[in-house]
Nucleic acid binder design. Structure first.
Length: 588
RNA sequence: GGGGCCGUAGCUCAAUUGGUUAGAGCGCCGGACUGUCGAUCCGGAGGUUACGGGUUCGAGUCCCGCCGGCCUCGCCA
């Protein structure tokens, strides 16, 4: 037997047992006449002691180096008073090796998994199999497994079926760019990897599988971020004969289950609900971080009456003047600090940042002179400002004030430690707009996707004020992340065609791209709705991490490359010939 | 597509306004050591400063290009 126990298992109660443990040499401490080995596996670290009277074992022990793979057999002994190591669960015992077996040597590793200082990420990704030996990543993988299992258990109990949908599908150029896969037997034609199983799961509803879920891999060929990978996993859910409320309740239940399983925490239900409009007004964001307040205030009415040109003109041109009040932050941000914040909001399109510091019951600022006593008082009361507070305002379009202040709010929330970083605040954001104006193409686009059902009473605005039409849609937000997104779907083929018409998808194009869906809608489609949760992001949030690569075993870099395997790579000309593909890469 | 930061020994980092032979800790190699757990002590090896140009008497440092990594705006139905 290569092992009887793991390296995380032995306790004082095991003293006297003859055991075999196997793992990697985390470190070796050679005292000449006595050698200690910290043996590591994913369960923990156990100390092995090798004494010279065990000649064969001792000889092997002398040759051991970091990351050698060994098995050690011997009696479990107590370490005795003063020699215990409280850092390890197994720290009260050790294995007195009678026999050592060297399974494999290791080259000197580029970095040591046991080291407290992290090497740079590039190196970690290149040697991911070593990086994955680190307890932090092992913890992430274990939590990911636990979460996935809890999700499946919850839906299984609810009568859901997990059904796999194809990875090789049809390309739909709307939305994100597809990863394409060439077909050999259909020269010149391509499959697309799924951006999500959206259409398949709707078809499953029409096929009568009224409760579906899938842990589904999805692919999007777009630029990456700290929280975005080109392939990611979503918890995909769809239900038939349901309304929005049924989905919300189902997912509320899932959340409570996960909080119980992962954090052993009772999550109060129902989860907070905000409308999209409310979220945008109060936080400037459709995915607000609700761990802290510092809500946006609109001072347009005051700005309009003031003599401050920038503010007045903004209002006159249909813009807005909004701001946030950072409690007690006046001293923390010097002139230079505020300059930095000004540069920061410029990233989001703001042209500047106006500020007031509240001191001795009065506003202090270079622009205070443009506001009379009443107006100053109105600003103070609008923000509820007290001595020591810092008020920051942006005057611009609705969109820019929202984006800039939302980003500023997140930044200040973090810099001023306005929340407990281990807290998780989950809430629903409802009633997203159905359409958004596409500036580039000068047309209306589906804000979410074109299969979202409109809110019925808003359909009257379709012709006159399309931006006002709300969708029966819902996002789950947590700590500033979009953590799930879904909607009631269209199940009436006529409504579906109306939506396509409106966003400029002609019946011919619709037939070509989504003909199968339109057909299916005409063969008895039940009312249905669904949602998809970002699994990677949830693992991230449960770990309190803000980097998605830390929760994926083999992630890709920002340029979607795999540092370990070298993917993507050139392929043989023969492979290309089989596929009838010629590449045309500009020479650089 | 745009903006920002970064790349120096195996690893983490240092190196004054551009100035002598590019240093330290860890790791590695050799030696000593019977209770360590960041073992300790002695000795040693280890560098195309990512890469390619340029400016200069002189470049790790300044400039241009390029490769790679990270953060971000756009993008992500």
């Amino acid at each position: 037997m290569l092992r009887t126990h793991t390296c995380g298992e032995l306790r004082i109660g095991d003293v006297g047992k003859e055991v075999t443990v196997s793992g990697w040499v985390d470190s070796r401490r050679d005292h000449g006449g006595l050698i200690f080995i910290d043996l590591r596996d994913r369960y923990g670290i156990t100390q092995i002691v090798i004494e010279p009277d065990q000649a064969a074992a001792f000889e092997i022990a002398q040759t051991l180096r970091s990351e050698f793979v060994i098995g050690a057999t011997g009696k479990v002994s107590p370490r005795g008073e003063g020699f215990e190591n409280p850092k390890h669960e197994t720290g009260k015992v050790e294995v007195q090796a009678a026999k050592l077996e060297l399974f494999n040597k290791s080259r000197v590793p580029p970095f040591e998994p046991g080291s407290s200082s992290l090497p740079n990420e590039e190196l970690r990704l290149k040697y991911r199999y070593i990086d994955l030996r680190r307890p932090q990543l092992q913890k992430a993988m274990i939590l990911r497994h636990k979460l996935t299992k809890a999700v499946r258990d919850y839906f299984d109990k609810g009568g859901f079926l997990e059904i796999e949908t194809p990875m090789l599908g049809k390309s739909t150029p709307e939305g994100a760019r597809d990863y394409l896969v060439p077909s050999r037997v259909h020269p010149g034609q391509f499959y697309a990897l799924p951006q999500s199983p959206q259409l398949y799961k709707q078809l499953l509803m029409m096929a009568g599988y009224d409760r579906y879920m899938q842990i589904a891999r999805c692919f999007r060929d777009e630029d990456l971020r700290a929280d975005r990978q080109p392939e990611f996993t979503q918890i995909d859910v769809e239900m038939a004969f349901v309304e929005q409320e049924d989905i919300l309740t189902t997912i509320d239940g899932l959340m409570a289950h996960l909080f119980k399983e992962i954090r052993n925490e009772e999550l109060p239900l129902p989860l907070t609900r905000l409308t999209h409009r409310e979220a945008m007004e109060r936080f400037g964001s459709d995915k607000p971080d609700l761990r802290f307040a510092m809500e946006l205030q609109d001072i347009g009415e005051i700005a309009k009456e003031s003599s401050f040109g920038v503010f007045k003109e903004t209002i006159a041109n249909g813009g807005r003047v909004r701001g946030i009040c950072a409690k007690g932050a006046a001293e923390k941000y010097s002139r230079k600090g505020i300059d930095e914040l000004t540069e920061f909001v410029k990233i989001y399109g703001a042209k500047g940042l106006a500020f007031f510091k509240m001191k001795d019951g009065k506003l202090e600022s270079s622009i205070t002179k443009f506001f009379n006593e009443d107006q100053q008082q109105a600003i103070v009361s609008k923000f509820g400002a007290e001595n020591g507070d810092l008020i920051l305002c942006v005057a611009d379009s609705n969109k820019v004030t929202s984006a800039a202040l939302a980003a500023l709010r997140n930044r200040l929330g973090k810099e001023l430690n306005l929340y407990d970083p281990s807290a998780m605040k989950v809430a629903w954001v409802l009633e997203f707009p159905l359409y958004g104006w596409n500036e580039e193409d000068q047309k209306w686009d589906a804000e979410h996707h074109p299969f979202c059902s409109p809110i019925k009473e808003d359909l009257q605005y379709l012709k006159t004020d399309p931006g006002r039409v709300r969708a029966q849609s819902y996002d789950l937000v947590c700590n500033g992340y979009e953590a799930a997104s879904g909607s009631v779907r269209i199940h009436d083929p006529e409504v579906q065609q109306q939506v396509f018409d409106f966003i400029g998808v002609t019946p011919e194009v619709a037939q070509d791209r989504f003909g199968f869906l339109l057909d299916a809608l005409s063969f008895g489609a039940p009312p249905h709705a669904g949602i998809a949760l970002g699994l990677d992001r949830w693992v991230m949030m449960f770990l309190g991490n803000d980097n998605i690569r830390e929760v994926i075993a083999f992630p890709k870099t920002q340029k979607a490359a795999d540092q370990m395997t070298g993917a993507p790579s050139d392929v043989d000309t023969k492979q290309l010939r089989d596929l009838h593909i010629k590449t045309d890469v500009p020479k650089g």
